[in-house]
Design a protein around this nucleic acid. Structure first.
Lengths: 202, 202
DNA sequence: AGCTTTCGTGCACACCGTGCAATCTTTCAC
DNA sequence: GTGAAAGATTGCACGGTGTGCACGAAAGCT
């Protein structure tokens, strides 16, 4: 049992250092004001090396881990007799639990994203490991061909939205309620056909 | 009644020429392979002038007109007693009708986008003139504060998805059915709580 | 006509992202 | 242990992007 080996460990460390440096610098000055050179300097590697790990600042900020588990196996492990929406809800709840491991980091990350709105659509690709993959998995789960029937794509897109809005609300509300509960509420609203809630009268 | 004036007209012509050149070149070679210099040359202006009209290739491709009508007035013109989903559906149907004016152009545009998937999330900002604006308008329509209640943001995001998926399907299916009909189907599915359709048995 | 405003353009600059080749380090086979 | 293979880091050079600035030309106004 030699473990992951020195090489692997150093690679992971470098990647983590670069991601962390990107996050910290972006939190301080805003992502647009930070250069790759600064990031590399803070992480202790050369400018050129940065691009051995990430294709750009964006990726370094939004995809700090590369080996994140995909959505498809989680979905296909669900009970096939469940309605698709319910099965997907359970799979995504598992996936969101990963964020709980580094709550502080993700909250900071969401702060940076909120200040750089051009990144907002990209959140779609984080919580769900990509909408295309989700579409494929839902097609398999439901037995519908995504190329012919819009249902899998629609469901995947809508769920991606639900994740994104939930994250934004969780962040805006200061994480007052746990992420999983907020996500459940959102899916409940979807399952009910998006009825208008009663206006609050404060 | 002198009309728009020579100056205005030339500006609009230049903008249209740049947008058109971007679209044509991107359709021929793929957006990533096209340089701003080529675009400017084809439109008959200088490299520098391109940036007086667009902030980059992306915008030139996805936002050919700047003065597109916003979503908010369309929504607030709807009957306030309607459910929010239904009111938004009607407002968006009006907005999508604009695309019918240049069907061929938009179908070509969608082809380019399909070949450059990193642009796909940006479609959200076209059909709906921006998700934030939609959220605000829905907050006003429902009497909910978007900062406290997630419902307006969720509805706006989901509708943006519906537009995007509808456009993708319309394009993939070769515009066999009209855009408005496809959009109606999608909203019907949403209103019904995203139930699983029967699997096709071909 | 003259005056003001606005637009087009050239120039310079910092940054981005990539290909290539040289150098150094880990790993593995002998 | 030693040396070769595999792989990571780095410097260098290059084409492309996007912006600030200043100058000239054209359009609109009086």
């Amino acid at each position: 049992m030699t473990g992951p080996g020195l090489r692997e460990r150093k690679k992971r460390d470098t990647r983590a250092a670069l991601a962390r440096a990107t996050l910290d610098l972006a939190a301080e000055h805003g992502l647009a004001e930070v250069t790759v050179e600064q990031i590399a300097a803070r992480a202790g590697v050369s400018y050129r090396t940065f691009f051995n790990y990430f294709s750009g600042k964006e990726e370094a900020l939004l995809r700090p881990d590369d080996g994140d588990v995909t959505f498809a196996p989680r979905l296909l492990a669900q009970d096939p007799s469940l309605p698709p929406l319910e099965a997907a809800r359970r799979a995504l709840r598992e996936q969101l639990a990963v964020l709980d491991e580094d709550q502080a980091g993700w909250r900071l990350r969401l702060t940076v994203i909120a200040a750089a709105p051009e990144l907002l659509p990209r959140l779609m690709e984080i919580g769900s490991a990509g909408e295309r993959e989700m579409t494929e998995a839902l097609g398999e789960f439901t037995g519908l061909d995504p190329a012919r029937e819009p249902y899998p794509a629609l469901l995947a897109a809508v769920l991606g939205c639900a994740v994104r809005v939930t994250l934004a609300h969780w962040h805006a509300a200061g994480a007052a309620r746990p992420l999983a509960a907020l996500f459940d509420d959102a899916v409940d609203t979807l399952a009910a056909g998006l009825p208008a809630p009663a206006p609050q009268i404060p």
